[in-house]
Amino acid sequence: MDKRIGLIVYDDFQILDLAALTVFEFANSLQQKIRYQFASLSVAGGMVKSSMGVAVDTQPIGFGTYDTLMISGALLIPKAMPALEAILKESASGKTRIASICTGAFVLANAGLLDGKKATTHWVWGRHLQEQHPAVQVDEDKIYVKDGSVWTSAGVTACIDLALALVEADLGSEVAKSIARLMVVHHRRTGGQSQFSVMAELEPSSDRVRDALKFAKENLHKDLTVEDLAEHVHWSPRHFSRVFHSQTGMAPAKAIEKLRLEEAQALIEQGHSSISRIASLTGFGDEERMRRAFLRTYGHSPKAFVHLSRLQKDNVYLS
């Protein structure tokens, strides 16, 4: 039996969120029979204008029943929409799977559907979501979060990750992987993956500091020192450390540790489970050193992340 997917939009929604429906379109193309029917929806139906001015034709939400309702996001926090919130609350009381993209989480929160649940949104708005809705357990650094039948995702291209996860829950991981390849998604991110990279977070203006970070990222398996990085960019260690700290806000050693943690987490996401092997590949050297870094930064050990990754592969989310 095919599933009905509805993407709910509203005035000034982010039009990129329509890409989520493309995932279900590709899912149909890979199956011998149609698995999904999908449509863009709004409370009243008709043309709805996106934030960039392009309008989308929609059907009224009450036109039919849906197995999954997805709420689009916007560039800003959506205003209260009592009619939509009432519809969502009623839908969630049945068997409908509810999902939000980006700031669509605020719509779900306004409807009370996130109270007591884990949720995420675009990292820019995570703190605002927590402040406005203290009953929500906000994790602003996740790509997507599943808590029961309610799913929430980060913003922008994370709508694709969310839709892929929904398809994986319905049709299995191999179908989801095939769709990712067809959509030229370089890496199908899992829910527990961070929304942004260490390289993007540091963002130094100096070409030499950026080159040093690139060098470090490519040589994490080595015993990197400040002297190694300084020599690579032809600066003295003292001058390099001073400029590095002024542009990134942290010491080189701390930045290298963050890069190693990010790489270790990526290896776990890819299916590596040997803690000693991961410690070796990422330059931590020994398991205890890596364990302390994980606990200090994430509050969980590497083994806990391995366990989480295995659960996610079985379509069970545990934070």
Results as ranks from 00 to 15, higher is better:
residue 3 K to M: 04
residue 3 K to F: 02
residue 4 R to D: 06
residue 7 L to T: 00
residue 9 V to E: 01
residue 13 F to E: 06
residue 15 I to C: 08
residue 19 A to C: 08
residue 19 A to G: 13
residue 19 A to S: 14
residue 25 E to I: 00
residue 31 Q to H: 11
residue 35 R to H: 14
residue 35 R to E: 13
residue 37 Q to I: 06
residue 39 A to H: 14
residue 45 G to W: 07
residue 45 G to E: 06
residue 45 G to R: 06
residue 48 V to M: 03
residue 58 T to F: 06
residue 63 F to S: 15
residue 65 T to K: 10
residue 66 Y to G: 09
residue 93 S to G: 08
residue 98 I to D: 02
residue 100 S to A: 09
residue 105 A to K: 13
residue 106 F to N: 05
residue 113 L to I: 00
residue 116 G to V: 03
residue 135 A to S: 12
residue 136 V to I: 07
residue 139 D to C: 05
residue 141 D to I: 02
residue 147 D to A: 05
residue 158 A to K: 10
residue 159 C to Y: 04
residue 159 C to R: 07
residue 164 L to V: 04
residue 166 L to F: 03
residue 169 A to R: 01
residue 177 K to R: 13
residue 178 S to M: 03
residue 178 S to K: 15
residue 179 I to C: 15
residue 181 R to K: 15
residue 181 R to L: 13
residue 186 H to R: 15
residue 195 Q to E: 04
residue 195 Q to M: 04
residue 196 F to L: 01
residue 197 S to T: 08
residue 199 M to S: 09
residue 200 A to D: 07
residue 206 S to L: 04
residue 212 A to Y: 09
residue 214 K to R: 13
residue 217 K to T: 01
residue 220 L to I: 04
residue 223 D to K: 12
residue 228 D to P: 09
residue 228 D to Y: 01
residue 236 S to V: 06
residue 238 R to Q: 11
residue 239 H to R: 13
residue 244 F to E: 04
residue 247 Q to Y: 11
residue 249 G to V: 01
residue 250 M to R: 15
residue 251 A to D: 09
residue 251 A to P: 14
residue 251 A to F: 13
residue 252 P to V: 00
residue 256 I to M: 12
residue 258 K to I: 00
residue 260 R to L: 01
residue 261 L to P: 03
residue 264 A to G: 06
residue 265 Q to A: 11
residue 266 A to F: 06
residue 266 A to G: 14
residue 268 I to G: 05
residue 275 I to D: 09
residue 280 S to L: 06
residue 282 T to P: 05
residue 283 G to L: 06
residue 289 R to G: 08
residue 293 A to Y: 03
residue 294 F to P: 03
residue 300 H to K: 14
residue 303 K to W: 10
residue 304 A to S: 09
residue 304 A to R: 10
residue 305 F to Q: 14
residue 306 V to Q: 03
residue 306 V to D: 08
residue 311 L to I: 00
residue 318 L to V: 01
